[in-house]
Nucleic acid binder design. Sequence first.
DNA 1: TTCCAAAACACTAACGGTTAGTGCTACGGT
DNA 2: ACCGTAGCACTAACCGTTAGTGTTTTGGAA
Lengths: 195, 195
Amino acid sequence: MTVPTGRRERKKAATRQKIADTALRLFLEHGYDAVGIRDVAAEADVAVTTLFSHFASKEALVFEQDEDFEHRLTQAVTGRAPHEPLILALRREIQALVRHCTGDGAAPIWRMIDGSPALRQYEESMRLRHTESLATAIAADLGLARTTTACRTIARFVIDAFSLAREAPDPETAVDEIFQMIEAAWGVTRPSEGA
Amino acid sequence: MTVPTGRRERKKAATRQKIADTALRLFLEHGYDAVGIRDVAAEADVAVTTLFSHFASKEALVFEQDEDFEHRLTQAVTGRAPHEPLILALRREIQALVRHCTGDGAAPIWRMIDGSPALRQYEESMRLRHTESLATAIAADLGLARTTTACRTIARFVIDAFSLAREAPDPETAVDEIFQMIEAAWGVTRPSEGA
DNA sequence: TTCCAAAACACTAACGGTTAGTGCTACGGT
DNA sequence: ACCGTAGCACTAACCGTTAGTGTTTTGGAA
């Protein structure tokens, strides 16, 4: 009834991690499409149903830490330094996220993602979820100083910046370019004073 | 070898239409998830494989005329009156498209779409395709007057406007609000003179 | 008219992701 | 020491989708 104190949680986390690691290894070795769920389960030495009790879908195995993305963005809004402009904080965070994705360590994974329509589609709808919570965070931060539509629009533009920059030849410059546009868009929403 | 002159094409189109109509009817009657591909095929009196030779997926049955959307947007760019500002033309077209989707005739279909995660996800990735061709059309219209990134960004913002407005309580006002933001974003991309 | 190549269509069977149903086992709290 | 819960396993299936194969229809050529 109370919070489980430890071992069970650790075991569960270990199983989850083992599945995720095994999946990623197999995917990178043989290609995402060439590896079946049954292969992953067998290699991780768990039952298929166990795998699906930890991950909602095959694609979710690849985007294991998607909550991180969501959390970092909302945190960039709610936890920024006092008086720091909203858009500036978001720009810094997106810049960091893009840098992380295009770094050497993550490159093979993203190459795999870009090569699979199923994964790209999954990523898009994942980002859409992130957009919702970012919009909520922005709206909460601003109180009633902006329209709901304006908040949702800005949230989506910010997420767009990530996707667009990631695909651009020079991601970091692209972030700057897009955020100039976002800044301008943000500017015209002010009902009274600037951010 | 040459272009088929008629009857064959008509028959093919008729089959396609019959499948689409049957599918939509069944989906609206019993719900999208409750109707299987085998049901649709049986009711339309075709084989499952025939159905899939006309439509790439189950979701595609619902978005039968998706090319229309794509075509109308690119046409709004390339076929607009001389000297008409790009963004204005796009705003008018998006306004029309939103009006059409929220009209009484299409309402049940969109309610069904909003109720099914699979359909929402499919729609999103469909819009992403549309974004690409819109970006291409915009880039072609502008020549080298803008960055590729700027064109792709604006294209995506315009598609976003459609999605966001469709979900807003007052869609038409939302289009206006979002397009004010797009206009501002567009403004800061000018390398020399306005559009 | 007759014949041919292509395209539409059909059928069976299967593949791969996903889930329901059922039950066992191990852990943590009492 | 005991019990409820949660993690896990197994089977069997559902559903969308595709490969393989063969049949009919159609438009054009001989």
